[in-house]
Design a protein around this nucleic acid. Structure first.
Lengths: 350, 350
DNA sequence: CTGTTAGCGCATTCAC
DNA sequence: GTGAATGCGCTAACAG
């Protein structure tokens, strides 16, 4: 017994024949164009298509029209809530414009990022959105820019999320300002001996947040010495290990700022595992306001970034749907959020 | 001054001309085929391509070959860690086979799911992976199956994640068995008065877990009465509200089982907000073992599903890369994980 | 092994 | 308005 022969999908040609009209008429009545086809014909075509289970072959359409309906999104790690929230926003906005989004991950490797961009160009996406944070000093950065420029030269559009990546469109995250505001708020709560757990030095987002935080502290006359800064992976594990390292050093601390929430979550767990009560013995703050930080104990103080909006923004910026037509950069406002992880210091300190 | 004219991307034709060879030779040396082209020619072609910044137009390639390198992944909500973890697995496995994955979200609407599948068919993906859990009694289910069957008839392959969706390939999640084992473990710890916060009745995953849990309890002679079962949204908020409802009812409970971790997280927060200490006053357990449940307090007891593996599995199942060639269904083993949210009852109860 | 030619499925310009 | 013919970028026979 032979397996059922796999028929190939119905083509526009089939539909036209079934409806007894020409290929051209079928095309016109099914897919856009300056519609000027007799309603009765149109109906017959639509019905024939229905009967045959016809679906436009987007690839073929793309080849014929020379343009696609694809947007490529490149993230470091889709399982990271930071990126998955942004992805949700991008996908949502894309849906509104009838665009399909393909997602690729780089695992935070600049090399893979470059490879990915190159591979994705084969898709001839209408736009490419790079959500990973930029690194400094990577030998691939330059090639990446070249690749992206070439992509734009050939009709594509790219949008970055994070820091300024001129000449490309960018949804600017105010890392410095947000961190500065947070530092000021925290200083106002009475924290004085702070440590920062940051990411690898090449990650610009980490550096900017560290820098902004330092600035804010300085405004309150609080120093941030090199030994109070610990570099670790930009992940939950990084935050965890960084905290262990900090604790081991015996440095007196009343506050730990982790440059992103995912790390901060690791900080909180590490503290607890070490018998230190987060929020009580030591304050903890993060950055991003990912969904889970409301649910850990104590709830985490952080800097809110409207992640989904950022994703939506990026897409609209790239497709030119953004209301602010001229804007090639859109800054997103951040908001300091104080929760239980950083109670007023004078009230809780021993 | 005029804006730079957007050149169109270099075509294979351009490359061939630049290299002084025929179109066919260029094609052969650049993209696969049974390679048998003179090395010196190949080199010239490759260099020319490099010089022109040529990238294969995957769309055109797809049209010509009649097959694509796309896999479509359909999830309820990409920002939900359950789905984003699965997505990470799918993307990872896809990368190994040089496949690009496009993601679409349904927001848990069967109607949108159907629409999405239809739309995605236009992409002529090699495989379609449906990760959302199935619903029962939806008028769209039938249409969905028809659409998917038609998709398979025309050469596509579909894979489901969750419950049996014959005749389609499925990565089977042992919801019943996992929940049963959990119930048994929990009963063994001394819990007796349990409540379950489950999802909408149409969601099969929720029903299966509820059912399995009930079975496990029954084996210990513990009943699960209707009034001890609360239906809520399949989300964090659902868990939160369901708990409020439960608390308001005044029913005496020593354990709450939420049918998924995301809901369980809501349960824990609701308890805490109500002044009830989770894990101490009332035990809490979930299902899935999403990453964050390790980091909430107390850490959540749950049933572990290797989410990323599930994603990888699904892809391999669909592409036929699965080692177990004959398998059209792959069951994934679950593991009961007891953490701080369900300490031995006799030791903690007042 | 290389070049020529004919499609792939669709959009579109051009006559009718 | 409608249909026939051409081309999009590429692959796959097909000859040389």
């Amino acid at each position: 017994m032979s397996a059922p022969v796999s028929k190939s999908p119905a083509t526009l040609h089939d539909v036209a024949r079934e409806a007894g009209v020409s290929l051209a008429t079928a095309s016109r009545s099914l897919n856009g164009s300056a519609r000027k086809v007799n309603e009765s014909y149109r109906l017959r075509v639509v019905e024939a298509a229905q009967r045959l289970g016809y679906t436009t072959n987007l690839f073929a359409q793309a080849v014929a029209k020379g343009s696609t309906t694809t947007v490529a999104l490149i993230v470091a790690d889709i399982a990271d809530p930071y990126f998955s929230s942004i992805a949700a926003g991008v996908i949502d906005a894309a849906g509104n414009e009838n665009l399909v989004v393909t997602i690729a991950v780089t695992g935070r490797s600049s090399e893979r990022e470059l490879d990915t961009v190159r591979a994705l160009r084969g898709q001839r996406p209408k736009v490419m959105i790079l959500a990973g944070s930029r690194t400094t000093g990577s030998p691939y950065e330059e090639h990446l820019r070249a690749e992206l420029s070439s992509f734009e030269d050939t009709g594509g559009k790219v949008a970055f999320i994070s820091q300024d990546a001129a000449p490309f469109a960018t949804v600017l995250l105010d890392n410095r300002g947000g961190a500065r505001d947070l530092a000021i708020a925290l200083a106002g709560l009475g924290y004085r001996r702070v440590a920062v757990i940051t990411g690898p030095a090449e990650i610009r987002t980490a550096e900017e947040r560290l820098d902004g935080f330092r600035t804010g502290l300085a405004e309150h006359g609080i120093p941030l010495l090199p030994e109070q800064i610990i570099h670790a992976d930009f992940t939950r594990e990084g935050g965890y290990r960084g905290t262990q390292e900090l604790l081991a050093s015996g440095a007196p601390v009343d506050l730990i700022f982790a440059v992103n929430d995912v790390m901060a979550v690791g900080v909180v767990s590490a503290l607890r595992d070490a018998g230190v009560v987060p929020g009580q013995d030591i304050g903890v703050a993060g950055f991003d306001d990912i969904p889970t930080v409301r649910d850990i104990t104590p709830a985490l103080s952080t800097v809110r970034i409207p992640l989904e909006d950022v994703g939506r923004h990026a897409l609209r910026l790239a497709t030119g749907t953004a209301t602010d037509a001229a804007a090639v950069q859109q800054a997103v406002s951040t908001e300091t959020i104080i929760r239980g992880s950083t109670p007023p210091r004078d009230a809780t300190a021993g």
